[in-house]
């Protein structure tokens, strides 16, 4: 009887028991346990789940855009222009009669691409520059940090404007420009984090084992910095989206007829008084996605930052 109960319990909680087991039998289980405990802390926070939900919704919207869009986002029909939201056009139509809901759905792809590419360029770049400067110190630190200061001394949007003006307008150049303005704060953060650990005994121990500087930076310093870099990038996502929208708004980012949210907002501005939905709908989309990334970043900080626990 007791044996039966026990097998039943272990069958029910098999995965759970494995994830919480005291004796760990392999590196995979050790990693899975760590992830699971992190997830439990994350899931305990309702705002965190909301943030994650919004970001997942953005991803789904981008992936499923052809399925959820009710119209062709580029199809113009001048007899249906400036229609208010209705059952045939969920969020109304714009000044050329294009369906705003469908354009927002396809625009999610552009937003997601901007965010991902900027994170993939700025994150590793900032992490590398920050950890190298912080770990090596001396003139390397001085040179890299003065360079960072130069980038930091301009407001991000202004610098992005200058880059786009130099490189020519367009989405790719806008992404590049935003990435170039996004790495300095990350480098600063990674350097500060590196300075707190470079004198740690565990770094001294691996130096004693004969490790090269490169190995120490990549395998021992970077894992310490990565959580704060991820948090920082997630929190910066909102700013990145706004900068991209700002560049689109000024006509320097995505070019018409691409359904970039900032560009849609910009053209909607001219019709704001008569047809509020042209500007409001992409504006709401930008707001919600920015909020989602901010909530997610805050929650990740609670889970990943060892100092908060």
């Amino acid at each position: 009887m007791t044996a039966e109960v026990r097998t039943e319990a272990s069958a029910q909680g098999g995965l759970r028991a494995w994830l919480l087991a005291e004796t760990v039998t392999g590196p995979g289980q050790a990693r899975a346990q760590k992830l699971y405990l992190g997830w439990r802390r994350f899931a305990a926070n309702p705002l965190a789940l909301l943030g994650l939900g919004i970001v997942l919704a953005l991803v789904l919207l981008a992936v499923l855009a052809p399925l959820v869009a009710t119209h062709d986002p580029f199809a113009q029909s001048l007899d249906r222009r400036l229609l208010p939201p209705s059952s045939s056009h969920l969020l109304g139509t714009d000044e050329l009669g294009r369906d705003i809901w469908s354009r927002i759905a396809y625009g999610a792809r552009i937003t997601l691409m901007i965010v991902l590419l900027v994170a993939l360029i700025a994150g590793p770049l900032g992490l590398l520059i920050g950890t190298v400067a912080g770990y090596l110190g001396g003139w390397v630190d001085v040179a890299l940090m003065r360079l960072t200061d130069v980038f930091l001394s301009f407001p991000g949007l202004i610098l992005a404007l200058a880059f786009v003006a130099a490189l020519g307008s367009g989405l790719e150049n806008a992404i590049l420009a935003i990435a170039l303005t996004a790495w300095p704060p990350i480098a600063r953060l990674a350097r500060a984090e590196t300075l707190t650990v470079r004198r740690a005994d565990y770094i001294a121990a691996v130096r004693l084992a004969g490790a090269s500087d490169l190995r120490i930076i990549v395998r021992h310093v970077m894992p310490i910095c990565i959580p704060s870099v991820i948090i920082r990038i997630t929190l910066n996502m909102a700013g990145i989206i706004l900068t991209a929208a700002g560049l689109g708004f000024l006509g320097l980012g995505a070019q018409p007829p691409s359904p970039e949210w900032g560009a849609m907002l910009s053209t909607g501005r001219a019709y704001m008084l008569g047809s509020w939905w042209l500007a409001a709908m992409p504006g709401i989309a930008i707001l919600v996605v920015s909020l989602g990334f901010n909530l997610l970043g805050d929650a990740l900080r609670d889970v990943l930052d060892p100092r908060s626990s």
Binding site: A200, D201, Y202, A204, A205, V206, L208, H220, P223, I224, P306
Partner: peptide, 12 residues
Amino acid sequence: MVFQDPYGSLHP
């Protein structure tokens, strides 16, 4: 070498 503080000498 073995360090003084075992809380600081192992990579977290």
